[in-house]
């Protein structure tokens, strides 16, 4: 299970990485913005993407739109703040499969990942 973590904050990436490894996911690649992520998806070929919304250079939404032009199926979970919630629908239209509101507990993230992968398998 390869997961690509896209977040401009190193702290946030570390937190999420810790949560993910706690959940048993160890193959994790990091990207610090949308552009960085686009350059990495080809070689890394992730099975799941965790995307932050607010990032410099290329934000999460733009990244999802770009990414979905070539890849319609790899599940994407958007990481948002409470205040971005009203815009989540935009992300959904762009092709996000699920979302999780910061701050989240390991339980919530695990639940979201399982939901997302479960629906894909169904």
């Amino acid at each position: 299970m390869k997961i690509l973590l896209i977040d401009d904050s190193k702290t946030m990436r570390n937190i999420q990485k810790a949560v993910l490894s706690q959940l048993g996911y160890t193959e994790i690649e990091e990207a610090c913005d949308g552009q960085d992520a686009l350059s990495k998806v080809g070689a890394f070929a992730p099975n799941l993407l965790l995307v932050d919304w607010n990032m410099p250079k290329m934000d999460g939404l733009t990244f999802v739109r770009n990414f979905r032009q070539n890849d319609k199926t790899t599940p994407i979970i958007m990481v948002t703040t409470e205040s971005e919630k009203s815009r989540v629908i935009e992300a959904i239209k762009a092709g996000v499969n699920n979302y999780v509101v910061k701050p989240f507990t390991p339980d919530i993230l695990s639940q979201r990942i399982n939901e997302t992968l479960g629906r894909l398998a169904a």
Binding site: K85, S86, V88, I89, K93, Y99, V100
Partner: peptide, 13 residues
């Protein structure tokens, strides 16, 4: 619950 939160936005959209 997390999707219920969004339904109103979906409806508008």
């Amino acid at each position: 619950a997390n999707k219920t939160d969004l339904i109103e936005f979906l409806l508008a959209d």
